[in-house]
Simulated assay, not measured.
Amino acid sequence: MAAREALLDRAMGPGRKRKSSEKLRRGRRPSEGLAFVAKDANGTLVGTVRLWDVRLGTGGTALLLGPLAVDPAVKCAGIGSKLMRLAIEEARRLGHAAILLVGDAPYYARFGFTAARTAKLAMPGPYERERFLALELVEGALDGAAGTLKPSGRKTKPARVARAA
């Protein structure tokens, strides 16, 4: 969706595709039923969040949330919080056990995210350890979890190429 990519570029800047989280999303589709957008009264996209399936180094699974982005023109209107609550509740309803993300700890703490459950986990590539956070949707879901996250879930379909006769 071109509108989502344009919003992500405005909200996150040009370096967004070099982040460790992007390595886990590249070539994958969001987890089934876990891609959300917010639109204004005119139907313009003003917010987005998606969750992605990942495999923990020790073999378990979790979701990776991100990016959460809100159009800078409407920041502080509660759109990000509403998208977060929706994403968490829907992930819980669909039976997922844990959500991981890399983000601002004070912002995500209000939703229950903490760095305490990610101490033995790692992202592929550079990241700031104190920003690697987790929320267990099922108590104990990350007990014993260790190692580097790996992408999993549905792959994107390769673009079809028309061949000239």
Rank of each mutant, 00 (worst) to 15 (best):
E89P: 00
G47A: 05
P72G: 06
R29E: 15
I99Y: 01
L83Y: 00
M12T: 02
R4N: 02
K155C: 10
A98N: 13
G95I: 13
K157H: 14
R50G: 05
D104L: 06
S81H: 00
A73L: 15
D104S: 03
G140W: 12
L56M: 03
I79M: 05
V54G: 08
P106S: 08
F36M: 04
V37S: 09
V138D: 12
R50E: 14
Y127T: 06
S20G: 11
R18C: 07
D143I: 02
A73F: 10
T114Q: 06
G78L: 00
R4E: 13
L68C: 01
V54T: 09
A97D: 10
T148S: 13
L51A: 13
P14C: 13
R92G: 07
L100T: 05
K120A: 11
S21C: 12
K23P: 07
R26C: 09
L34V: 14
T44L: 03
R131Q: 13
A146H: 09
T61E: 15
R10S: 10
G153M: 14
H96L: 10
S21K: 04
K75I: 10
A122K: 04
A119T: 07
G57Y: 05
R131K: 14
F111R: 12
K120M: 01
L137S: 11
T58P: 04
D53H: 11
P124F: 03
L65W: 05
A115M: 01
L64R: 11
L8W: 12
S31K: 05
R28T: 14
